[in-house]
Design a protein around this nucleic acid. Structure first.
Length: 650
RNA sequence: GCCGGCUUAGCUCAGCUGGUAGAGCACCUGAUUUGUAAUCAGGGGGUCGCGGGUUCGAAUCCUGCAGCCGGCACCA
């Protein structure tokens, strides 16, 4: 007697309803059973929270969600598919090119290829055209599971050595899935769309670059093609427009346009600060100094050139001397300081320090030089000569926690004052190569973690990225075009005080090792100012603006009064200039608006007679006519440096 | 450092297959005295990134180097 085992499946949909199906059913079939519209719109399926191909059978009861355009996971699917379509196009057009990896990334995707001949920008046009054709072909995308050895053999035979090598590194029991579209196939974990036609045409190839195989500079270099991909043409266009807009805020461009700074070939990686840029720099420095003083820091200054022997003792020579600039003097080798910590330890070591003096917060606006690889230089974001808002807190192990909390608060206050409300914090723990024993690292990592949590900061883990001497926190800000830059940092260091022999006298009368907390808030003035320029697109808040106001005359009759107005603003501590040129007011307003001067004070015959000024704010077409005294008082109040008294009048 | 691209007036850029460099803005001069985003007219300005080569002749072709740009690697 035959018994038919026909398993009934119960599928729960996102609205809570359940449907039952006979025996294994695919996501595509479920979609079709709900409605033809959904079947057509379906891109993939989520089975118990895991994204899957529409074609894969579901064999057990499950919660199922049909993924369509607009779903939070749909863009990633699209982008990953776009990478495959790119690879198919490239292999059709350039036979002999090997494929490697091609993931979805933020805003798009890339694919790394191995090919002797370099790809050119012209090639991108051709490849993109072929990609559109592949989408139009609407090739069905089919998932297959292959035998591991057969897969290795296959890829080795067709000359895809990277794919073959990759399979060999997969776990023995790993499922080897292959995705086939048309005549093309790729080893891939998936999932993918049901057919290339679902991808649509809202994509664009954006750039070519080199990339090392498996991200290791010792390996051969591949060619990476980047693209962006969206659900609709409208989204694509919006993204491209956003990039164009962002380019206009680039600090390198604004630095030139606003006459803030320049850089030149003879001093690659160093900044020439112009008067307006230097004004901005000094405003930030003055602000920082006042914040640090209020937070109980003492300020010091240490030498630019220090003998090699000190760097050997600190351990920097061994690890970093290739990145240090060396100067020779008579028989000695001196290094231009790449960082300030060994110098600070020297100050700490002068005389005797008591436990009563701890924590000792020693700050320096430390000018450092690091010989960065040429390819790493990037405007003011990555330079060879920079000034850190550096400080080292010498404390006892018991004080790490409270000092971390205090620091995080200070950092947040300062970032907020500069208009950065969102903060990305990364916690980097012990690297593979490190100094100090595991017990010490356990203690340091735990202390830091506890403190961050106590400070109420969210953080992401950056495993193995700590400094060789201790774990660290990184505070990351983002530039105009979405690139992340580390600015603030907080590092626990048990090693340097040991190496340089720093100690203090404890309550017990004996000598003890202090812990050093390396910390910076802005990071480097150069990088931070670059980000600040981009953050505000050059339209600085009043307290930061290099030129806060301009007094512009309508006719020369008002020249004397304009000078009087300028003087009144200047006496109130404001940075102000006059524009007495023989030009129309339209011309002056346009020019100062383009120069991003926050306040234009217009004076004509009327204002001169009545003792008033007409204030026009940057970005507004409105004017406000006020008595001179009132105008000065108001602007002065608005220009107040955060955390400080407003600029003093007479 | 690696891969690719770029480098022409202060800035943005044009300059076809080699025949000795051009525009707009900016700058200077003159006129204009002007009411909230460009007044008009005239003028000056370039060893075409640097070095070597091919050629009767190179901004243009070849080559070395540098810097910059986009990534990759690095980032104490």
């Amino acid at each position: 007697m035959a018994v038919t085992t026909q398993s009934k499946l119960s599928i729960t949909l996102p609205d809570g309803s359940t449907r039952s199906y006979d025996g294994p059913v695919t996501g595509g079939e479920i979609a079709a059973s709900i409605g033809p519209g959904l079947a057509k719109a379906a891109l993939a399926v989520k089975v118990d929270g895991a994204l899957r191909d529409l074609s894969r059978p579901i064999e057990q009861d499950a919660a199922v969600e049909i993924v369509t355009a607009g779903h939070e996971d749909s863009l990633e699917l699209l982008r990953h598919d776009c990478a495959h379509v790119l690879a198919e196009a490239v292999q059709e057009l350039y036979p002999g090119t090997q494929v490697t990896f091609g993931p979805a990334i933020e805003n798009g995707f890339y694919y790394d290829f191995a090919r002797d001949e370099p790809f050119t920008p012209d090639d991108l046009v051709v490849i993109e055209k072929r990609m559109h054709e592949i989408v139009d072909r609407n090739e069905e995308i089919i998932r297959e599971v292959w035998d591991r050895d057969a897969a290795i053999r296959h890829f080795a035979e067709i000359g895809e050595k990277y794919k073959a090598e990759h399979i060999e590194t997969l776990a023995d029991d790993a499922e080897i899935s292959i995705y086939r579209q048309g005549d093309w196939l790729d080893l891939c974990i998936g999932p993918h769309l049901p057919a290339t036609g679902k991808l649509g045409h809202a994509f664009k190839l954006t750039k070519i670059s080199g990339a090392y195989w498996r991200g290791d500079a010792r390996n051969e270099q591949l060619q990476r093609i980047y693209g962006t991909c969206w659900e609709t043409e409208k989204q694509l266009k919006a993204y491209l427009t956003m990039l164009e807009e962002a380019e206009k805020r680039d600090h390198r461009r604004l630095g030139r346009e606003m006459n803030l700074f320049h850089m030149q070939e003879e001093a690659a990686g160093s900044v020439f600060w112009h008067p307006k840029g230097w004004s901005l720099y000094r405003t930030v420095e003055r602000y920082m100094r006042q914040r640090l003083e209020a937070a109980g820091y003492v300020e010091v200054k240490t030498p630019q050139l220090i003998d090699r022997s000190l760097w050997e003792a600190s351990g920097h020579w061994e690890k970093f001397h290739e990145h240090m600039f060396i100067a020779e003097s008579e028989e000695r080798s001196l290094a231009v300081k790449p960082m300030n910590c060994p110098g600070h330890v020297q100050i700490f070591k002068q005389g005797i320090t008591s436990y009563r003096d701890l924590p000792l917060r020693m700050a320096e606006f430390g000018s450092c030089h690091r010989n960065e690889p040429s390819g790493a230089l990037h405007g003011m974001m990555r330079v060879r000569a920079f000034t850190q808002d550096d400080a080292h807190i010498f404390c006892t192990p018991d004080q790490i926690n409270s000092e971390t909390v205090i620091f995080c608060d200070l950092l947040r206050t300062i970032y907020r004052d500069f208009g950065f409300d969102e903060l990305v914090v990364k916690f980097s723990d012990r690297p593979a190569v490190r100094a100090g024993d595991d017990a010490t690292w356990d203690k340091a990592e735990q202390a830091l973690k506890d403190a961050v949590e106590e400070a109420g900061l969210d953080y992401t883990l950056n495993p193995g990225e700590g400094a060789f001497y201790g774990p660290k926190l990184e505070f990351v800000l983002r530039d105009a075009i979405g690139r992340d830059w580390q600015c603030g940092t907080f590092q626990v260091d048990f090693v340097l005080p040991e190496r340089l022999g720093a100690n203090y006298i404890g309550e017990d009368g004996g000598k003890h090792r202090p812990v050093m907390l390396h910390r910076a808030i802005l990071g480097s003035f150069e990088r931070f100012l670059a980000i600040l320029i981009e953050q505000y697109a050059g339209r600085f808040p009043l307290w930061l603006a290099p030129q806060q106001a301009v007094v512009a005359t309508i006719t020369s009759d008002a020249n004397d009064y304009a000078e009087e107005v300028r003087a009144a603003f200047a006496v109130a501590g404001l940075r102000v200039e006059t524009d007495l040129r023989n030009e129309k007011i339209n011309y002056k307003v346009r020019e100062h608006s383009l120069a991003k001067v926050p306040v234009i004070a217009v004076v004509g015959r009327r204002e001169a007679e009545e003792g008033k000024v007409a204030l026009r704010r940057l970005g507004s077409k409105d004017q406000e006519v006020l008595a001179l005294g009132e105008a000065v008082a108001r602007i002065r109040e608005e220009a107040a440096v955060p955390g400080a008294e407003p600029p003093r009048g007479q």
